[in-house]
Every structure is written in C-alpha cells, then in structure tokens.
Design a protein around this nucleic acid. Structure first.
Lengths: 143, 143
DNA sequence: CTATTAAACGATAATAATTATCGTTTGTCA
DNA sequence: TGACAAACGATAATTATTATCGTTTAATAG
C-alpha cells in the first residue's frame, strides 16, 4: 500500500471516528484490491495470508463499520432473510436506509421505464427491479 | 376462499405440475391475503390459526415451489449472504435468475438514469439501485 | 372405487451466516 | 507515559434455512 492510500485510509477513519488499527487497514486494502461482490468469507480468506491470526468476527465488524461510515456499500440492502412479494402489480421499491422499511411504488408513478438500448455479453433482460434508496419521512424527522 | 380463487389455485398447481394439498392451498391463500413483503415466519404465523399442526418446513417448501413456478416472486434475488460492493463507479447489476451471478453494468451504458418526478409520502431519494433480472449468456445456452 | 406409488407432510437434526460475549490487547489523547 | 475506551481473538449463541426420514396423502390406472 502506498503513502497516498495510507493517508486516504487514515483520513476516512478519522472522519468516521474509528481507530486506525492494523487489521482494519488490511481489510480495507483487501476490499480495495478485490473486484466484484465478495462475501465476508472471501474477504477473510484474502486477509488471512497477511494476518494469519485474524478472526472472522473482526472481518465482519470492520465491514459493518466501513458500510456504516459510507466507505463501502452493500450489494443488497435487504439480504437478511427471504421476503415474498405479494403485490402482483408492476412496481418498484422505496427502501429506507435507516429503518430498512420497504414501500412499493408503482412503475407508472416512478416513470423510469425506458428499456436499455443493448445489454453487454448477450445478457437477456426479463425485468427490472429498481430500489430507490434514501430516507423515509419518519427517519428524516428523527435526524 | 371463493370458487374462482380455488379454481385459479388448482389451475396454477396443475400448470406447475404440483399436487393440490390442503396445506399448499392455505399457504397460497395466506400470501394472497397479505400485503407488503412478508417473511416465511410471518406467513407461517398467518397460516397456523387455520392449520395448527403445519410445519415451518412445509411453509418454506411451498414458498419455494410458488417462486419456482412463477406464482409469486422474491423481493431480492440475492439475499443469501452479505456482499460488499467493490466497484466505486456508479453502476447497476445484471442478475442471472438461474446461476445468480451478478455482473456490473455502468449507469451510462444502461441509459435509464431519469430522476422520478416526485416521490410519495415525503420519501427522500438518495440513489437508485437497479437490478436487471434475466438470463446470462451461459444459462441461455444450457436451456 | 380401490390399490399403487410418488409427492407431500411433520418433526427435528443439521448447516450456514451472522452476531454476541468476554477476557485480553492496543490505539488515542490528555 | 498512563488511563481508558475501542478493538481484538476465541468461541458460544442465535437466526435463517435446508436436509433427512418415517408417515400420510393425492393422483391416477385399472
């Protein structure tokens, strides 16, 4: 890791109000060097060669801190447990990042239908699922 | 449940090639009567007053069958485990419904940016997360 | 209408992912 | 440099889900 990256990491930690530790830095760097959408286990395996004694729990704790402080994002805000869609109408979701509530918004109201011009790698699109991430009215008030 | 609903359920079962059982019918009806995005536990609690001896495993099995056969949908196709986004560029996802792979597609290429005109209930939108659901090239070939 | 058979069921064990606990170690800041 | 909160590692606990297996039931051929 070069000096600029170290500085960036330290700045991000102080902005987030968290300590600069060796483990945290190595997890952060691992994420920086990875592509795609790694799971905590995969990140753990990536970090272990550098810190063989690190605990998986530490990896989880740091990932959560990174996400809370906006240094990284989660792929899905609602991956905790299976949910079944009961609304048969075409619609999308308003997802509150604080209380995790999900409200339906019908596709018409949203007005962002437009089909993509073309999809790379021969991907065959069947439908869109749009999550609008933000704050619900209640969580805006309590801030 | 009225006659038309029963007929619809039986037709859906025969189209899916699954048996019409009492438990299955009650789970289906429960889903029909619920709003929002219930979890398997919530569906189970809804069904229990009608079939006190039903097993949670039966509820899970039937939900899966309903989803496989297209009678209902899941809210999120990738809720299995946490994934961290490593791509810092604005982008969306091509999600294959068969192999569950996730490919990034940058927002520009997709070309469906358009902000919504207005959001109901005072929801404050911060960003969009768009999943394009369909079949990747590999899974198209193997069908 | 009944016998056959595969599918479905209920109970529950097993697994996977994640979180909590707790004693020890380490940054941070006065 | 010392005090103290934060972070760490080990691991127990929890939660969500899936697998197993013996029993029951629906589908259907006769």
């Amino acid at each position: 890791m070069n000096a600029a990256e170290i500085r960036e990491f330290r700045d991000a930690c102080s902005a987030a109000g968290i300590a600069v530790t060796h483990q945290r830095q190595v997890v952060w760097q691992a994420l920086r060097s990875m592509h795609g959408h790694p799971s905590p286990e995969e990140i753990y395996e990536r970090v272990r060669p550098r810190i063989p004694a690190i605990s998986l729990a530490t990896v989880y704790k740091n990932i959560h801190l990174f996400i809370e402080s906006g240094m990284f994002r989660e792929v899905s805000l609602h991956h905790g447990s299976m949910r079944v869609e009961t609304n048969p109408e075409p619609h999308h979701h308003l997802v509150c990042r604080v209380c995790k509530s999900i409200r339906d918004i019908d596709a018409e109201t949203l007005g962002v239908a437009g089909k993509p011009r073309r999809l790379p790698d021969g991907f065959l699109a069947e439908r869109y699922a749009i999550d609008i991430l933000g704050l619900c009215a209640k969580c805006q008030k309590s801030m």
